[in-house]
Design a binder for these strands. Structure first.
Lengths: 221, 221
DNA sequence: TTGCATAGCATACAAATGTATGCTATAGTT
DNA sequence: AACTATAGCATACATTTGTATGCTATGCAA
């Protein structure tokens, strides 16, 4: 007979196995748990799983294949992949979205909002801690509040600036004394969206998920 | 009979349904696809899925329940949740890890490395674009190279600085003229790890996944 | 027209997978 | 010793779920 392990010990490892698999997006079957731990009976694995459920460490969809889940408080928002756009220049945003440089994972999604990411060029926002090469996560929206850091089309190119209102006019302010504010003609400002997150990768290129050719798109649903 | 839709149209929607579910970590069954689109036959759903596989837009584990997958180039590293630590002060890092403020999703994981996240306090690194309130992602490691931005224990508190070597001694340099470099006594430096990513959340609190009490831990596997 | 491809339906079957029942063994407790 | 709890095993069964086969209908091109 297989030696018995101290109480709880094995179950703890089972929990971590299941958790790992769930975070990988590949919920295990009872028999996969069995195999992973070398149990000679399915029921041994199942007993551990059911105990974990009764302890509240797992939840499950009964009678469903691969039905065990993590009991996140609230609900862990699905990590969404948002397109990382390279050059956003002439044309609409939509065209740029069709050929992204890659994808970046973000962990929130409120409702139906449309997100995308941009790599920052130039030093015009260093005063706000946004350096060249940084990646900004942008929520597409047609307007913004004064003080927001926004992405707007200026001279057929996307630029990151802080939105200000001076003398009843909208202005785009850099955060760098070497740069001058942009004062677009009224009605001439095309706002792409608001910057909601800034990221800087200090090591190698992050895992940009290059989704299979041409079939990934702006993830808004 | 149910009206036929134009070629490819429905399949495109099926793809997105499956993709969404996979990104949520809940792979669908063929019959769930069927139900989601109101097909009256399982086979209709399956035909679409198999076509998507033959087109290379999906891959599958044959004969397995919920076996459809996204065909990421290489392999999309599982988004890992790393603990966001609040106050790292006295004691070892391990003790701080046991009571994290929350969890942050990162999208890479090379092998067995141990990651954690810290919220930055103070303005000593503003010159490097690291502002108070920013979140730094740290890879735990016992040594680092000159020029790296590191997290080290100084006076029983974790601090973020740039590692320099002056006169054959290791120094911790702030990036702010108002702060002075720290020159620890030889052998007195406790390096927690290297900063590999900087994040700034400009809106509300990010989705910190508060995993069910006490059972989440440092995710290194 | 004929032929062919695609979208969809209906039904049956087989494999994967969850579930139930009863058993043995070890350790601790009364 | 008797009782109880936990870990594990073996086997059978039921449900879920993937798979196969054959059919109808529509649109398009030769």
């Amino acid at each position: 007979m297989t030696p018995k392990t101290p109480p709880g010990q094995t179950r703890h490892r089972v929990y971590h196995f299941v958790r790992k698999r769930l975070l990988e997006g590949r919920p295990p079957t009872v028999r996969e748990v069995q195999a992973a731990f070398g149990f000679r009976s399915v029921q041994t694995a199942r007993a551990h799983l059911e105990t974990l459920v009764s302890e509240g460490k797992l939840i499950k969809e009964a009678s469903k294949a691969r039905g065990y889940r993590l009991p996140e408080v609230g609900q862990l928002p699905a990590p969404a992949l948002v397109p990382l756009l390279g050059q956003v220049q002439a044309g609409t945003l939509t065209t740029a979205v069709e050929d992204p440089e890659g994808y970046v994972a973000v962990q929130y999604r409120h409702g139906q909002e449309t997100l995308f990411a941009l790599r920052v060029r130039g030093r015009s926002m260093t005063g706000a801690g946004i350096l060249p090469g940084d990646v900004v996560i942008v929520r597409q929206q047609p307007s913004a509040d004064p003080g927001d850091i926004v992405v707007a089309m200026v001279d057929d190119e996307a630029t990151v600036k802080r939105l200000r209102v001076r003398k009843n006019r909208v202005e785009l302010h850099p955060e760098n004394p070497h740069f001058k504010p942009i004062v677009p003609e009224t009605g001439d400002l095309v706002l792409l969206g608001k910057v909601i997150e800034v990221r800087r990768y200090l090591e190698n290129i992050p895992a940009l998920a290059f989704i299979h050719g041409g079939h990934a798109d702006l993830f808004a649903g």
